[in-house]
Design a protein around this nucleic acid. Sequence first.
DNA 1: CGCCTAATTGAGGTGATTCAACTTACGTGG
DNA 2: CCACGTAAGTTGAATCACCTCAATTAGGCG
Lengths: 248, 248
Amino acid sequence: MDGTNLERLFKRMEERKALSAAQKAELQSIVSAPFAVPAGKDLIVEGTSPSKSTLLLEGYACRYTILDDGRRQITAIQVPGDFVDLHSLPLELMDHTVATLTDCWFCTAEHRDLKEIVRKDADLALSLWRLTLLDGAMHREWIVAFAMNAIEHVAHLFCELYVRLYVVGLTDGASFEFPITQNVLAETVGLSAVHVNRTLQDLRANRLIAFDGLRVTILDWKGLREVGKFDPKHLHLGKNRDVAALLA
Amino acid sequence: MDGTNLERLFKRMEERKALSAAQKAELQSIVSAPFAVPAGKDLIVEGTSPSKSTLLLEGYACRYTILDDGRRQITAIQVPGDFVDLHSLPLELMDHTVATLTDCWFCTAEHRDLKEIVRKDADLALSLWRLTLLDGAMHREWIVAFAMNAIEHVAHLFCELYVRLYVVGLTDGASFEFPITQNVLAETVGLSAVHVNRTLQDLRANRLIAFDGLRVTILDWKGLREVGKFDPKHLHLGKNRDVAALLA
DNA sequence: CGCCTAATTGAGGTGATTCAACTTACGTGG
DNA sequence: CCACGTAAGTTGAATCACCTCAATTAGGCG
């Protein structure tokens, strides 16, 4: 068990079906050593064609596109265990940029090695394919969230983050680290920073969450889910017993 | 060339790299005969696990989710040549519903046959995988479009439809059939039907498009792209010469 | 202490919503 | 051939959610 720790990736891949020891070893054998990237750096830039895919091990990253008026729209928040650009394997060209939101650790896997896996092990290929489709499912859910009002949208975002972090073991009871500014939240939900601020105050006043810019604590999970109309079906968590309990 | 016509699917799959005659024959051999579905029917329902994937041959379909307040949010519009649920191959469970917007023709491919292809032909596997990622790329683009105002958003939608239909040969000069109500457009862009109506009037007044509920004619392609901030990078059209000309 | 960034507050403006009415087009039956 | 019903499109008026701009407060940190 030396080298880069892929446990969080494995947890994600095993939501549907367990990986064999050989499959884990196979993945373990192709990933690079971990490396750090400071907060606020563009990691993979729109218009480039990566020759490897990058796995987030620690920290928060995001995908974004810059709008004409200079605003940045974040289209996904990535948490540890997420491949941030696995889709570049079949798609080749990046149509958006991936950046770090906090100090992060990553590792990489060469596309030629990943393609070799796809060739040799159809089950592993389907499992990797599945990971990229989960991104798509989350995108769809975000589109739906954009049709909600501000409070619902922000509540929905916190619900999603909580469950995703829970799956990879990064929640501590009802709370999780989230050192993200209100500005970044605004870029995520497509609202002004001022309105995000007022929305957070609403959520606090309704005793749904506490958030000090560093850590989110969920005070009323049932209430938050109700406000955010959150149904984790799009996360395709399968029959994970722990998560079932979380959602009961 | 008997049986179901897969030309539009092939056009989509060949954006990056040509398929061999054998690969086309392989795909041709696993698809069902075409069948018709009338407008307004739910074709693949949220919560089910399809044992086959469905290809749209003619007409318009959509993916949607119903919100708490009863509104329907459309998360994708599907055009001929699109697999509407190829993602259910690795993902198994449908997290949203697919419905027809107009009278449609479809055909299907059994998952066991598709998996056999994935097993035997890694290139074809990557090509199918790629198709599902294009959906994801479009979802991301839609998220960005939701951060725009009404006119920009609607203009963006028409731009995207125009290019996608052009790729599969369904444009006639600067126009294309689009027998879609303003109500459905409202469900697509997340606006009220009233405001979609006023937005369309704006687009007409600015001589950007003509739209009578049955057919869209683009009067000012350059202007429309400008208003909609449309950049087709997310469609990953590769070096298709015709499309390059369209976008010049 | 002074500086910087993030968070917060207030006031005024605007884009989009809701609701209700009216029109237009089209199909169906008397 | 007209009377009617229905669905889609259009319009006006009042309201609301969110935005912009500007000022203020709070919290690290050299």
